[in-house]
Computed example of a mutant assay.
Amino acid sequence: MGTKIPISIAGNLVADPELSVGESGVAHAKLRVAVNQRIQGADGSWHDGEPVFHNVSAFRALAENSASSLRKGDPVTVAGELEFRSYEKDGERREARRIVADTIGPDLRFGTTVYQRMSHAPVAAPDVDVRAHLDTPVAAEAATPGYNVASKSPVVVPPFGPAAGTEMSY
C-alpha cells in the first residue's frame, strides 16, 4: 500500500477527460491538470512559473460527471488524496504519483456554471455515450440562480415544478 496525502489543487485541464469502464463495471476518468504558480519579478511585474502537471483519477459518478461536464482548457479545482506508487518496468524500478479525486469542480473565479442535479441512475455501460445529454436543452428551472443577491438567501425551488397554490405538492 502506498502513502496517501490529502491535497487540493487549482489549475487547467490539459486534455478532455478520458472515460473508461473497467471489467467490474466501475467508471474511471483520467484527467491531467496543469498548475501554474504566479511569480512576481523584481520590477513588480507578474509572470507564470513552470507548470506542474498532475494526473487525476476519478471513479464512479464523479468520473461520469467529470467526463460529461469538463473540457480541455477548463479551470478546475480538485480535492483528494495524493497517491504514490512504485512499479517495475523493463527491469527498472519506477515511481508514479496521481491524485485520487474526492471532488472535482469548475473554478468559478474564471466563469459561471449552471448546476444540474443528476438522478441516481446506474453506471453507464461501455457502449453508452455519457456525453449525449449535453445536446439537450437545459430546463428553465435549472437556469435560475441558486442564490438571491438582494436578500442574500438561497432561492428555494420545489423539486418537481412550482407548487400549486399554498399546498405542498411533491
Rank of each mutant, 00 (worst) to 15 (best):
M1I: 11
G2I: 07
T3D: 12
T3C: 12
I5Q: 14
I5H: 12
I7N: 05
I7R: 06
S8E: 08
S8V: 06
I9L: 08
A10F: 01
A10K: 02
L13Y: 00
L13T: 00
V14R: 00
P17V: 06
P17I: 04
E18F: 08
V21E: 00
G22C: 02
G22S: 10
G22W: 02
S24W: 01
K30A: 08
L31W: 05
L31P: 04
R32C: 07
R32F: 06
V33L: 03
V33P: 00
V33H: 02
R38T: 11
R38P: 02
I39Q: 07
I39N: 04
G41A: 12
A42G: 02
D43I: 08
D43M: 06
D43Q: 08
D43S: 09
G44C: 10
G44H: 10
S45A: 11
W46R: 06
W46D: 04
G49P: 01
G49C: 01
P51L: 03
V52S: 13
F53D: 12
N55A: 15
A58S: 14
R60T: 12
A61G: 09
A61P: 06
N65K: 05
A67E: 03
A67G: 01
A67N: 03
S68N: 09
S69N: 11
S69E: 09
L70F: 14
L70N: 14
R71W: 13
R71E: 13
G73K: 05
D74V: 00
P75L: 04
P75T: 01
V76D: 00
V78K: 03
V78Q: 04
A79C: 11
L82K: 09
E83K: 15
S86P: 04
E88N: 08
G91L: 07
E92T: 11
E92I: 07
E92W: 05
R94W: 12
R94Y: 10
R97G: 15
R97L: 14
I99C: 12
A101C: 12
D102I: 10
D102R: 14
T103K: 10
T103R: 14
I104Y: 08
G105Q: 06
P106S: 09
D107T: 02
L108P: 00
R109S: 06
T112S: 05
T113Y: 02
T113A: 13
V114K: 05
Q116K: 13
R117P: 05
M118T: 12
H120E: 14
A125C: 00
A125D: 04
D127R: 03
V130P: 01
R131N: 06
A132K: 03
A132C: 02
A132M: 01
H133G: 06
L134T: 13
D135N: 12
P137Y: 07
V138T: 13
A139W: 07
A140I: 08
E141M: 08
E141T: 09
A142I: 10
A143R: 11
T144G: 03
G146H: 07
N148L: 03
S151E: 13
P154W: 08
P154I: 07
V156Y: 14
P159E: 15
F160H: 15
G161K: 09
G161I: 10
A164L: 10
A164M: 06
E167G: 04
S169V: 08
Y170F: 15
Y170K: 09
Y170G: 09
